[in-house]
């Protein structure tokens, strides 16, 4: 049971992030919401690779009497998460720079007023 808690945290974080993206009207809060969803997905990937009592998957630095490979956590999800974090940083930086420009040209961060393009 205790090892399922991260999965509940993933669901809650996704819900929180989605709430921010859908119901918050401030563009910066929308960007924050996306970052929260992204953290949730990263947590999900990391949790997938965890094994109870597992050690870091470094062959040259293994403690004694570790079963190979059952005693190690999975390395692939960590590689995926690392990639995903890097992408997330780029997305966040790009979105925030858009927000800066939008504030320059519209004078507001309210998503209900940033709608020159519609219909």
């Amino acid at each position: 049971m205790i090892y399922n808690i991260p999965f509940f945290a993933v669901i809650i974080l996704i819900a929180v992030g989605m709430y921010a993206v859908i119901f918050r009207r401030n563009l910066i809060k929308i960007a924050i919401g996306i970052t929260i969803v992204e953290s949730a997905v990263n947590l999900f990937l990391i949790t997938l690779g965890y094994r109870e009592g597992g050690v870091a998957p470094i062959y040259t630095n293994l403690p004694a009497n570790v079963v190979i490979p059952g005693g190690m956590v999975l390395p692939v999800p960590q590689a995926l998460t690392l990639t995903s974090i890097v992408i997330g940083v780029a997305v966040l930086a790009l979105m925030l720079s858009f927000v800066i420009r939008i504030y320059q040209y519209y004078g507001t961060l309210d998503s209900k007023k940033v709608r020159r393009l519609k219909e």
């Binding site: 209900k112 709608r115 219909e119």
Partner: peptide
């Protein structure tokens, strides 16, 4: 009706997706 649902608000776009 179509003009009503094409609001141009980003929150609504995400709501449609979900």
């Amino acid at each position: 009706f179509m003009k009503k649902i094409h609001t141009g608000i980003i929150n609504d776009y995400v709501l449609w997706f979900l």
